[in-house]
Nucleic acid binder design. Structure first.
Length: 180
DNA sequence: CGAATTTGACCCGCGC
DNA sequence: GCGCGGGTCAAATTCG
């Protein structure tokens, strides 16, 4: 939050491969993604081969005793064991100095945990739109602390709240790319 | 004053 | 069965 301005390094920090910064800069970031994981976010997010002994592929556990959870929890507990309900997750790998990549949506942080082989904590965010259960987690690599891995989970069911001109355009394209 | 963040506790799946 | 590691909740606190 306090470093919000650093998100636009056009003037001070010189060029950086920020994901959504400027028109020209954005292409750099996309190429970076494309080169790293060879499919970008188009492929399934479960190819986090970067992290050793990653157990991030585990399915999402559901709470049982949540009485007044929000209107509709998608999966009901105590049944449904034939197939794993693991939602697809999309991992981005960006080179950024800040963890909070503002993609135009409004996120509320709901947790932070330390990862075993990482000295940086992982932050959990959730979309604050009513009825939108999209989650994301942001993690920084110990190996290269300039790399920030952002993992999205789910799809937004609404429009972007923040019409930051160029961002909206990029985001709309991202939605088209996702295999939903 | 309401919304967002912080932070420790709790829960759950899995490996030993 | 227990411990570990990761994910989420929720009360307290801070921020706008």
């Amino acid at each position: 939050m306090e470093n919000y301005q650093m998100f636009f390094p056009c003037s001070s920090t010189g060029q950086s491969t920020y994901p959504f910064s400027t028109n020209m800069g954005s292409s750099n970031a996309y190429h970076n993604l494309h080169g790293e994981s060879s499919k970008g976010f188009i492929g399934l997010g479960t190819e986090n081969h970067h992290v050793p002994r990653d157990e991030v592929n585990k399915q999402i556990s559901q709470r049982t005793e949540s009485f007044a959870r929000d209107e509709s929890d998608e999966v009901k507990p105590s049944k449904k064991k034939e197939k794993k309900i693991r939602k697809p997750r999309y991992a981005f790998q960006t080179r950024s100095q800040v963890d909070i990549l503002d993609d135009g949506y409004r996120w509320r942080k709901y947790g932070q945990k330390a990862v075993k082989n990482n000295k940086f904590p992982r932050s959990y965010y959730r979309c604050t739109y009513q009825g939108c259960n999209v989650k994301k987690q942001v993690q920084r690599l110990t190996k290269d602390e300039a790399i920030v891995v952002t993992t999205y989970e789910g799809m937004h069911t609404h429009q972007i709240e923040k019409p930051t001109d160029n961002f909206e355009h990029i985001l709309s394209q991202m939605q088209i790319y996702t295999p939903f």
